[in-house]
Write a protein that binds this DNA or RNA. Structure first.
Ligand code: FES
Ligand code: FES
Lengths: 143, 143
DNA sequence: GATATTTTATGATAAAAATCATATTTAAGA
DNA sequence: TCTTAAATATGATTTTTATCATAAAATATC
């Protein structure tokens, strides 16, 4: 459903949401290890997220990655789009093109409503929402 | 969501469901062109489907691919699994492992019910179902 | 200002997925 | 039985995705 890159990006953001702050920055190694992603790889992903202002970073000693209050309001969908591009989640199940309700493919009716519901949730749910969910012990951050 | 290979496989099976029969076999070129898939590629996919008995084939002159009555009862999910393997649709959204409701990841609650509903439908819906849907003009076979 | 520590920019390599190519086998029909 | 039309087996190539590596730039602290 998502690319590895997208999964890793979400895990990293979530880890930052739970464990970092403006005064508690995290260095690459301290992110890569707990979320179990090769550190050179997550480094590249973090760079991209930082460039798109989804996460914050400062370099040099005492530097690292963190989220601002604003960035806790980032929607999950924005993270996915930042690394995977927009198309992936809207593509039709049978063609490589956009899904189209006016000219539905043969599988369209089997999935459209549910896919839509999922997409709506991904567009609405913020990192802060997920953070609270985790804090309440209702879900985990898998390795 | 699906690999190109899976999309192509479903399109090809559907095309056979609508246009072929034991007495009206179709040759690779007559499948590849209308569904708009490179013929060397679809050939390879058809070979795999044939080996798994999801479609039928005979070689030599007057040969080609077709579906038997039994094969019209193939479930969409079986086609996907035949070419992509079983894991893809059950993998957790955040880890690369199996989705697990006892230890739900942070995105689990956003998608589980819907993903399940979709999977159930893919497991239940047959090529014959889809064929009728197309015949009734309720959906199309995209190129 | 020199040094150490961090991100950033860039690109190389590896693995997987998609695509292309072709020689071999099978079966029909002349 | 020969020729021809088809699938089948096999493998090569290309493209995309995932992963690894490193030199350059920035900043805190001494
Ligand atoms: S048109 Fe194919 S999934 Fe909507
Ligand atoms: S545990 Fe991650 S999607 Fe179910």
């Amino acid at each position: 459903m998502f690319s590895n890159t997208a999964k890793y990006a979400i895990k990293a953001c979530l880890f930052l949401a739970v464990n970092s702050s403006e005064v508690n920055k995290l260095v690459i190694k301290d992110i890569a290890e707990p979320i179990n992603v090769p550190s050179a790889y997550i480094a590249k992903i973090l760079q991209a997220l930082s460039k798109k202002d989804i996460i914050s970073s400062t370099r040099g000693p005492k530097g690292g990655f963190y989220l601002t209050g604003d960035q806790l309001q980032t929607k999950v969908m924005q993270i996915i789009e930042a690394v995977d591009g927009e198309e992936r989640l809207n593509s039709c199940l049978l063609s490589l093109e956009k899904c189209n309700s006016d000219n539905p493919c043969s599988l369209h009716h089997l999935v459209f409503d549910e896919k839509n519901k999922i997409n709506e949730r991904l567009k609405k749910t913020t990192l802060e929402d997920l953070r609270q969910h985790i804090m309440r012990g209702e879900s985990i951050l898998p390795l």
